[in-house]
């Protein structure tokens, strides 16, 4: 439980850094893309690559580019919380 929380906070921090705005408060409900989204498409790619590297440190492969990832990509990239949940659920399934 503690690890999950730590990971979430780490991901929120990464998002904040990518958005280049330290005053931001990133939480579960923060929109990543769309009208109120924090990140443009290139930043979102960078975020996913950072998650890929983080997953590799933990010992699993974070899949965001396969066909199955593509089919659920809309939902998974919508909010910071949705992306964290996807990351954690892949981690639990693969480790």
């Amino acid at each position: 439980m503690e690890q999950k929380l730590k990971l979430k906070n780490e991901i929120f921090e990464t998002i904040k850094n990518l958005a280049e705005d330290n005053t931001l408060l990133v939480d579960e409900e923060t929109s990543l893309i769309g009208e109120a989204g924090l990140l443009d498409s290139m930043k979102l790619v960078e975020l996913c690559l950072t998650l890929e590297d983080r997953a590799s440190d933990i010992g699993f492969e974070f899949d965001w580019t396969s066909d199955s990832a593509m089919s659920k990509s809309r939902g998974m990239f919508r909010t910071a919380g949705a992306l964290c949940n996807e990351f954690i659920s892949q981690m639990e399934a693969k480790t």
């Binding site: 498409s41 965001w64 580019t65 990832a69 990509s73 990239f77």
Partner: peptide, 10 residues
């Protein structure tokens, strides 16, 4: 290039 579901490639 690497494929991705957001920008097609990066």
């Amino acid at each position: 290039a690497k494929k991705n579901p957001i920008t097609g490639q990066h």
